[in-house]
Design a protein around this nucleic acid. Structure first.
Length: 498
RNA sequence: GGCCCGGUGGUCAAGCGGCUAAGACACCGCCCUUUCACGGCGGUAACACGGGUUCGAUUCCCGUCCGGGUCACCA
């Protein structure tokens, strides 16, 4: 056995430093739940001034996805979850890709066999969950094989796996930072496979080995791993390693409209992933902020606060505030966060973000993106709301004359006809086609006609836009459309009313 | 089903033995107003249930119910 593996790693890591890791498997997208786990993991490290590492768990050869690692990098970067060590950066305890650490796991598994905490198993492979459970764990005929005989069969080339030998008696208690102490009867635990037939480790084994070798102090992961935690403890103890602090995070649920119940959020059921949300026009900052609050809440003074930047989160995040019960993902609230972030943007930043969405329907270069964006900023909750809202600029919709009737504005077809007839010459004669003059001209006209502002504004806006609801009022829309186009549309309205 | 973990308004949640039980989203009104928004103001709405412990339980313990997780050579 190569002794350096046992003594070398620890020496490379400063004592007392908090080290956490996000260890995704490359699936090609980021679950919302995974994003939150990554975020909390990052926050714990940053809060403590420690190190955050990225490790790729690609031990499932059957599920390799091309380019998936790049998706992970891109997502992490976009979210601001910077890492200090990782496959691309390297670091003192690499490699950071599990398949590149392959020889390591076998050595450690064999060490466990030597110690009697694991054993070779030659039983038939159960290909799936359904095929498993052919025999009860206590019935595994290989568990009590003579070590020398087992070794001989291995050397003879017989396929095998290495299983963890879990005591049949007693119980195991482990400690979790959010759930507290949890005790499980050992008889409830199965002799899980550590090393697969292909020589690669299972997730559970690779985690223990890597987390130890990489000096991870806080193991953060989803609550679905809570039930395997006692087996981890048994493994750490068998190795004689220090047990890290476990931080299990409850699942993120989502309401299922079909069944009227909640279930764990998952890509498989068509629930949105991080990428989906971004594609739907949600801002990265809003998603991160919202997700941070799904399962964690600031305490004390900050209990009422909801808006946090990443840096602020790093400052105030504490494991104490992590909740034990599963939280339901609420798209409406995410939308609220997104709307707030959109409104808080500098106008020019918003215009830049909105431009591609505006240009989906506003192709005419005569219409200024910044002008339109200014109308939109307070009126959209997500960027994908935009195209539909501004579709009337390029082409006047084929609207119904009924739109001219509006009770609140006191308009009907007849009134509207008079308003348009009066507005057209006034607008034609305007010296300067800009916000102030158009506004003042219309207000003055309303006064001279003896009608309330809305009575004049409504028909003008309807004729100009051809829609009942528009971003911005009559003045803004006319200004952007330009004098010529505005007059053309108002005359069309007049015709429609004749 | 066994085991494990949860349970404060529809949702996220504060609370950590004594409170008229915060706040936010959503919803409903009102104000503002050139449509719709934004913004402002106000409102409806909760401690799952039953036993204990205690002078006193949302808070501690037990049971019930409900919800979730897990029982793969997947992670």
């Amino acid at each position: 056995m190569d002794k350096q593996w046992f003594d070398g790693m620890e020496a490379r890591i400063p004592r007392g430093e908090v080290r956490t890791r996000f260890a995704p498997s490359p699936t090609g997208y980021m679950h919302v739940g995974n994003l939150r786990t990554a975020l909390y993991t990052w926050l714990i490290a940053r809060h403590a001034g420690g190190k955050f590492l990225l490790r790729i768990e690609d031990t499932d050869q059957g599920r390799l996805v091309e380019g998936a690692v790049d998706v992970i990098y891109a997502t992490m970067r976009r979210c601001g979850l910077t890492w200090d060590e990782g496959p691309d950066l390297g670091g003192p305890v690499g490699p950071y890709i599990q398949t590149e650490r392959r020889p390591l796991y076998k050595k450690y598994a064999e060490l466990l066999v030597e110690k009697g905490a694991a054993y070779y198993c030659f039983c038939e492979k159960a290909e799936s969950k359904e095929d498993s459970g052919q025999f009860e764990r206590s019935d595994d005929p290989c568990r009590d094989l003579d070590p020398a005989e087992a070794k001989a069969r291995v050397e003879a080339g017989e396929p095998y796996v290495i299983r963890q030998r879990i005591p049949h008696e007693g119980s195991t208690t482990f400690r979790d930072a959010v759930y507290g102490d949890i005790t499980v009867e050992n008889s409830e635990l199965d002799d899980q496979i550590l090393l697969k037939r292909d020589g690669l480790p299972t997730y559970n084994f690779a985690n223990v080995v890597d987390d130890h070798l990489m000096g991870i102090t806080h193991v953060v992961r989803g609550a679905e791993y809570l039930s395997s935690a006692p087996k981890y403890d048994l493994l750490y103890r068998a190795f004689g390693w220090e047990i890290p602090i476990y931080v299990h995070c409850s699942s993120i649920m989502i309401a299922d409209p079909e069944t009227g119940t909640v279930r764990k959020m998952s890509k498989r059921h068509g629930d949105p992933s991080y990428e989906d949300l971004i594609a739907q026009g949600y801002l990265n900052e809003a998603v991160v902020n919202y997700v941070a609050l799904l399962g964690w809440a600031p305490r004390g003074e900050l209990a009422e606060r909801e808006f946090f930047t990443l840096d602020e989160l790093a400052r105030v995040f504490d494991i104490e505030g992590v909740s034990k019960s599963p939280a339901a993902f609420d798209m409406a609230k995410l939308t609220y966060f997104n709307a707030s972030y959109l409104r808080a943007m500098a106008p020019e930043d918003f215009a830049q973000a909105a431009e591609p969405w505006i240009r989906q329907t506003v192709k005419n270069p005569a219409y200024d993106v910044a002008d339109i964006a200014a109308l939109l900023q307070a009126r959209c909750e997500k960027l994908s709301d935009i195209p539909e809202k501004v579709d009337f600029f390029d082409a006047l919709p084929d609207y119904d004359a009924g739109l001219f009737t509006n009770k609140k504005s006191k308009t009907d077809p007849e009134v509207s006809w008079r308003m348009l007839e009066a507005a057209i010459p006034m607008l034609e004669g305007l010296a300067d086609w800009s916000q102030g003059p158009i506004h003042d001209g219309l207000i003055a006209l309303a006064e001279s006609l003896g009608v309330k502002n809305a009575t004049l504004m409504w028909p003008v806006r309807i004729a100009a836009a051809g829609k009942a609801v528009t971003p911005g009022g009559a003045v803004e829309i006319c200004r952007i459309l330009g004098r010529e186009e505005t007059l053309r549309r108002l005359r069309l309205g007049l015709e429609k009313l004749s």
